[in-house]
Design a protein around this nucleic acid. Structure first.
Length: 252
DNA sequence: AACATTTGACCTTT
DNA sequence: AAAGGTCAAATGTT
């Protein structure tokens, strides 16, 4: 259904992870998160010492995997890289992964289970609904967690959350801040740019998207309870951006 | 030859 | 208009 797709685009999960490059890791280690990425751009960012580089999944076209990430070297600590992931991997990395498991440190990253990420995505997607309308622009749009981050840990800490608003205020101070940085109409359109170009001239789509976005948020506001939002059927398939590909066919 | 990166142009959002 | 994000041609690498 179209709605699903639109929601998917809008609800693209987004989170940031910080990776410190250590001598054991080697300078190459920082990028090795178990997925293979293809760099597609680099930009100098205002006020940042180092440029930001943009990656997408190598298998975007082969497997319709729309995961992307941005890597930004930290201003103050050059050994730290801030990696912002956007979208979940729908590709089958285990079959295609080119990355050899390097150092033990990296293995921690590599065995970071994919489903766990998926879960994270789903949850964040839900959380986003609840943060709709909140002004979290001031909040540092990231959180970090150790690569050893266990899923059990995650669940036990996530679900007890009483009110999401509290978390929002805690911002980066909270131990595990699943920062609701997903409010982001900008990410939305950014990610659809690619498809947009495929059938440029169909400007309606842009509006259609916003319209639906509003419908969604409107609906969200009626189910205002944060926990209530969590009770939506958490179906990976539902959120799995496994769909966009058809769109091309639909419009051409 | 096929695939990846670099890099300035181009597009979108603010 | 400017900053951020993406495209795509040129270039580099395997």
């Amino acid at each position: 259904m179209f709605l699903d797709w639109f929601i998917c685009r809008k609800m693209l999960p987004l989170w940031t992870e910080q990776v410190r490059v250590t001598s054991e890791n080697g300078l190459e280690g920082h990028n090795d998160d178990g997925y293979s990425w293809r760099k597609y751009g680099q930009k100098d960012i205002l006020g940042a010492k180092y440029p930001r580089s943009y990656y997408r999944c190598t298998y975007r076209h082969v497997q319709n995997c729309w995961a992307t990430k941005q890597v930004q070297r930290s201003d103050d600590d050059p050994t730290v890289f801030e990696i912002t992931y956007k979208g979940s991997h729908t590709c089958n990395q285990s079959n295609n992964a080119v990355q050899p498991p390097a150092s033990p440190e990296n293995q921690e990253l590599n065995h970071k289970p994919q489903q766990q990420n998926q879960m994270l995505f789903d949850l964040r997607a839900k959380l986003r609904v609840n943060t709709e309308g909140l002004d979290n622009k001031e909040i540092t749009p990231h959180f970090s967690f150790p690569s050893t981050f266990a899923s059990v840990d995650f669940e036990s800490r996530i679900f007890p959350i009483s009110t999401l608003a509290d978390d929002v205020h805690l911002g980066a101070n909270s131990p595990l801040v699943v920062s609701p940085a997903l409010s982001e109409s900008n990410y939305f359109s950014a990610s659809s740019t690619y498809e947009m170009k495929r059938f440029r001239g169909v400007h309606n789509l842009q509006h259609l998207e916003s319209d639906i976005a509003e419908i969604v948020s409107a609906h969200a506001s009626t189910t205002n309870s944060p926990i209530g939002g969590m009770e939506f059927p958490i179906d990976p398939v539902e959120l799995d951006p496994n769909f966009p590909f058809n769109v091309q066919g639909f419009f051409t």
